[in-house]
Design a protein around this nucleic acid. Sequence first.
DNA 1: TCATTTCCGTTGTTTTAACAACATACATTC
DNA 2: GAATGTATGTTGTTAAAACAACGGAAATGA
Lengths: 219, 219
Amino acid sequence: MNYFLLGQSELFAGIEAGELDNLLDCLNPVKKTYQKGEYICRAGEPLRFMGFVLSGSVNIERNDAWGNQSLLGRVAAGEVFGETYACVPGEILMVDVAAVEPCEILFLDMGKLLTICSSACGFHNRLIQNLVRVMAAKNLNLSRKINDTAPKSIRGRLLSYLSYQVVKQGGYKFEIPFNRQQLADYLGVDRSAMSNELSKMQREGLIEYRRNWFWVKGE
Amino acid sequence: MNYFLLGQSELFAGIEAGELDNLLDCLNPVKKTYQKGEYICRAGEPLRFMGFVLSGSVNIERNDAWGNQSLLGRVAAGEVFGETYACVPGEILMVDVAAVEPCEILFLDMGKLLTICSSACGFHNRLIQNLVRVMAAKNLNLSRKINDTAPKSIRGRLLSYLSYQVVKQGGYKFEIPFNRQQLADYLGVDRSAMSNELSKMQREGLIEYRRNWFWVKGE
DNA sequence: TCATTTCCGTTGTTTTAACAACATACATTC
DNA sequence: GAATGTATGTTGTTAAAACAACGGAAATGA
């Protein structure tokens, strides 16, 4: 097990390496590996475990009955997915989870995780607090996506997304983690129309960009 | 304090009346009252406490700089709001919280809530598990809103919303909790255009409706 | 019951984004 | 470095939603 990654992760933050063994014994996780492009979970299935990405990264996607795809987010190594569904018994997955690259996933039983196991593993409490923070952060990401898609115009959505990137990345020049098609999916707009709008915004001097690098011009 | 409501709520579910006193002593909550239309929290503020609605109900709204309003949801008595923000120190509110009617709010300190207080209040663990489930449920609601606004067409959004109501309310005839303007805000579309689309769908025999009552016709 | 207000549906116009099709730039591989 | 494939940008057309304005129905309150 990669203890360094675990220690670095949000979920296991603040738990000492010595305690991790106890904790993992208590949680009894299952490790699985996946190929690039392989589906880890499919919409419609129930989910009893939460997933912790040990290596690689996964996409959270929604593919509706008519073939429209919407990229909801990406989960990198050290991050988790499915914790929400795993908390609500009987709830079925609304999204697909797919491996972007080869990856290893650690599946954690939510029932065991939420049950304090007497004194055997002293850091169990800490784990739960971390989980709550992780869920809160994820919640905020969802809220952010809602904000970014709330404006009716493509420009409004782009400005919402880019403004937040300025704050998040702490500067007016930054790199975004999406290509055009993915950004368009995230914002719920047509790619070419979005490219068009980006061009206009650049001509008007609002922004400059080159591939994935953006420069938002002042206030 | 209304112990009956507390016992009925998700957050305090499974905690006996006798234990509630200990628990509340430990949490040391603050109670405030608000008038109809009054803002309980404003976007841009940080939030150190989570809110528990003792009576009345509140709207979660987003009002952007250009005056566009988007209704994100409603929180009724016995439900909570702001728990996400309260979990992430330094995070500022992206939304406004407004009283729909006169209401009483109990503010709970998240720091105290997440810290297990030795053996004094035995149901503290239960409270935390409840909180996690509440956050998960809220998370799913956000996901649902994202799903409902993912389709590009008004009809697609309506079908997404109505299909879920069928599942949620367990039947093809149901009442929705929004008026037309609020539903349009929730779906992120124009009210009159939505009315128009509803008419079309009724003419085509997909649905029937009368005010807030809807009847979704078959599969 | 009447007056007032709020809510809902309809229509026509305008704006905007989706869509399709193509051109160009970039990256990758051999 | 040539060839291929992928990503991005551009343009014109079409479809759809936003918008504005209004009429009528239903709820509300005196």
